[in-house]
C-alpha cells in the first residue's frame, strides 16, 4: 500500500552487497512519511541497520536515497541518529558529554538534554563507562533527542531499557512525532511498534516484504487457522501459510476468499494483529504479497 504523504526519506532501488555475495539490501524502495513514526521491522540480519546506514551515508550503496529531498551531506544537522550499539565517549561524565555535544553540534539543546537526564534518573557527574546497559541507552537517547532535528533515526532505541523506562521513551518518541518531526525506528519488539508506529515496513533477507499503515492492517488482511488436513488448503491459494504440527495458519488479502473460508467447518478466524502478520510474512511460505 502506498503511503500518501511527502517523503522525508526516499529510497529507490537500494542495493548493498557486503563482500562478494552477502546481499544486505536487495532492491529496497521505501518512502518515509514526514511527521509520522515509521517502524522498520525484521528479524536479525534482515537489512534494517544496513538500510539506516545507507540513509546516513555511512556505507556505500547502489540506488538513490534522498533525505528531505536532498543529499544527506547537505542536511546532516537535520538528522539525529541513535545507532544499534549505544556507544558514547565513555570516559566522559554525562555533563561533559552534553557540553561536548553543545560544542560540536550546532542544533544541540543542552538544557533539554539535562531535562531528559533528569527524567531518566541519570547521574550527570558519573562517567558513562560506569553506566548499566539501560543507562547507556537512556544517555544516548538524552543526547539524540535533544538535537533540534527534523528526522530522528532510531535503531533499536529501547535496547536494554526496563519496561517503565521503555514506556517513557516511547511516550517521548510519540511526542516528537506529534510536534511534526519524522521518526524512523527499528525494533524487534512488536508490541512497541503497535503502540507508537503509524506506518510500518517489514524487511527480511534484504527485501521489503510489506509497507503499510498499522490501522489498515485489519481492513486489508484476515488470518485463519485450520487443521492441516482441511480441504480449504487444496481449494484456495493464500498469500501465506504457516504450518505448525497439525494446524495451519493462513493469511488472506482477498475479501471474497474471507467469506468462503470462514464458512468452512473447522476454520477459525484470528485477530489480524501485527505479531501474527509479522510471523506469517517472515515464516510463512514464499508467495509474494
Amino acid at each position: 500500500m502506498k503511503v500518501e504523504t511527502t517523503a522525508a526519506v526516499s529510497i529507490k532501488n537500494l542495493k548493498k552487497v557486503y563482500g562478494k555475495s552477502t546481499i544486505a539490501a536487495d532492491d529496497v524502495s521505501l518512502e518515509i512519511a514526514r511527521g509520522r513514526i515509521t517502524a522498520l521491522l525484521g528479524p536479525n540480519g534482515a537489512g534494517k541497520t544496513t538500510t539506516l546506514k545507507s540513509i546516513l551515508g555511512i556505507i556505500r550503496y547502489q540506488g538513490e536515497i534522498a533525505v528531505l529531498e536532498r543529499d544527506i551531506s547537505d542536511v546532516r544537522l537535520k538528522v539525529s541518529f541513535v545507532p544499534e550499539e549505544k556507544s558514547f565517549y565513555d570516559s566522559l561524565t554525562l555533563e561533559k558529554a552534553f557540553s561536548m555535544c553543545a560544542m560540536i553540534l550546532d542544533e544541540f539543546d543542552h538544557a533539554k538534554a539535562r531535562r531528559f537526564a533528569e527524567t531518566f534518573d541519570l547521574p550527570l557527574k558519573k562517567r558513562i563507562r560506569a553506566f548499566s546497559h539501560g543507562m547507556k541507552t537512556a544517555a544516548y537517547l538524552s543526547i539524540a533527542l535533544s538535537e533540534n532535528a527534523d528526522i530522528f533515526i532510531l535503531d533499536e532505541p529501547t535496547w536494554g531499557l526496563d519496561p517503565i523506562r521503555r514506556d517513557e521513551v516511547l511516550d517521548i518518541i510519540a511526542e516528537i512525532a506529534s510536534n511534526g518531526k519524522t521518526v524512523l525506528y527499528t525494533s524487534h519488539i512488536i508490541p512497541e511498534v503497535e503502540r507508537i508506529a503509524e506506518v510500518f515496513s517489514i524487511m527480511d533477507k534484504g527485501r521489503i516484504l510489506y509497507t503499510g499503515e498499522l490501522t489498515s492492517l485489519t481492513e486489508e488482511f484476515r488470518v485463519f487457522e485450520m487443521p492441516s488436513v482441511s480441504p480449504v488448503l487444496e481449494k484456495e491459494k493464500f498469500e501465506k501459510e504457516l504450518r505448525r504440527k497439525d494446524m495451519v495458519t493462513v493469511l488472506s488479502n482477498d475479501p471474497s476468499q474471507w467469506e468462503r473460508v470462514s464458512s468452512v467447518e473447522g476454520v477459525s478466524s484470528l485477530d489480524t494483529d501485527l505479531q501474527t502478520f509479522f510471523h506469517l510474512l517472515i515464516r510463512g511460505n514464499s508467495h509474494e504479497i
Binding site: I58, D90, I153
Partner: peptide, 12 residues
C-alpha cells in the same frame, strides 16, 4: 568503540 557512528551521522 563504535563512537564513529555518532560523528559520521552528524558531521560530514
Amino acid at each position: 568503540k563504535g563512537t564513529i557512528f555518532f560523528l559520521l551521522s552528524r558531521i560530514n
